[in-house]
Amino acid sequence: MYIKRILLVVALIGLVVLGIFSYNIYNYIFSPNTAFEEQKVTIYIPTGATYEVVLDSLKPHLKDVSSFHQVAQKKGYDPKAGKYTLERGMNNNDIINRLRSGNDPVRVIFNNQERLENLAGRISTQIEADSTELLEAMKESEFLQQNEFTTANALGMYIPNQYEFFWNTSAEDFRKRMKREYERFWTEERLKKADQIGLTPHQVTVIASIVQKETAKVDERPKVAGVYMNRYKNGWKLDADPTVIYAIKQENNNFDTIIKRVLYKDLTLESPYNTYKYKELPPGPIAMPDISSIDAVLNYEDHKYFYFVADVENFGYHKFAETLAQHNRNKQAYVRWINQQGVKR
């Protein structure tokens, strides 16, 4: 009887110990372990990050770092690069599962970049790859040759839009994806339209970039594109101020400068981008054209206008003319207005 009592007491103690142990284990794994008040926080895990690096990133957001560490060790957690969202009230098990398989995509947005350098800088703020890596990938000669691009026209491969990427996308994978998007954009219908107007996709993009710089009004772009197509088809020089501005910036190696007025002396600048001097299209786009500008060239308005100038009575739009005499009359109003504003450059 005495032995039975001892065994019973031992069994009860064992059950209590087991209960306490199980309770602690349950708490370690399933009790909420977040220390932030926000509904969500974002964690970025760099490529090649060690467990210690991840733990350091998590520490400010955990109530009990020790319990997380123990559960992570038991579950054999191995860091994976990416962007992860933690939600208030998550337990250690939830957090580890999220860090294992919850890599969130990021929205990458870009438009109207003037050069590959600007594009690389813009993209580097949205994914892990830095601007140097991105620019090197964008300018890689082997890639450009294989895909029939040059450093001058490579900007045209990046169609401005909104895309989903994983944050840890490499520079090469970004470039590869954008090449696929370029091929997807240039549908059979668009290629056929380009062929019908006697242009290659590269040439369409160059003219579209000029249209983009000439007018911010989407509804006016087909009309402006029609002017440039009339000049191009008739063997005229394009005489486009935005190309001269680009040439000046390139000559001075300063793309941050703001030029509001093109002077007569600028028209003699020696540059393949100076369309007042050369009939040939520039070797590449002078900016990243919107899809609306590309489609404006492909579907340009069929009219008889060869000239246009800013309309000072309807800002943002332009006055169009068929003859130089009519254009000069329109131009006088603009010159008077710009002189009144004191714009000298």
Rank of each mutant, 00 (worst) to 15 (best):
R231N: 04
E37G: 13
D78Y: 11
F306P: 00
V262T: 06
A35V: 08
Y228A: 04
R336Q: 12
F315I: 15
K277Y: 03
D290C: 06
L298V: 02
Y278F: 12
Y334H: 08
K237H: 05
V227H: 06
A296M: 06
I13G: 07
T34N: 04
N27Q: 14
V312K: 01
K63L: 14
Y276S: 05
R261F: 05
K4T: 09
D94I: 04
I96E: 00
L62D: 01
L15Q: 12
R5I: 15
G82V: 00
V41N: 04
K179W: 15
D241K: 03
A287S: 14
N111E: 15
K40R: 13
R175C: 03
E140N: 15
D311K: 00
A81F: 02
D311V: 05
A208Q: 07
L116T: 00
I3C: 12
N147E: 07
L86D: 02
V41R: 06
A310Y: 04
R190P: 04
Q146C: 05
T150Y: 01
A194Q: 03
S22A: 15
P105W: 07
N330E: 04
D78V: 15
T257R: 15
F185W: 09
D266C: 07
H303Y: 10
G82W: 00
Q332E: 12
S209M: 08
L99V: 06
E52K: 11
G14Q: 11
K331D: 01
W236C: 07
K193F: 13
Y44N: 13
D104R: 06
V17F: 12
G82F: 00
Q212N: 09
T132C: 07
Q341E: 13
W186P: 02
V71S: 03
R115S: 11
R336K: 13
G156L: 03
E117Q: 11
A120Y: 06
E128H: 06
F143T: 11
L269G: 07
G226L: 03
K192N: 15
P46C: 14
N230E: 09
Q341H: 08
K83P: 01
N339C: 10
K63C: 10
P282C: 08
F165P: 00
S131Y: 05
N234Q: 11
A333L: 06
N230S: 09
K277R: 11
N299Q: 09
G235H: 09
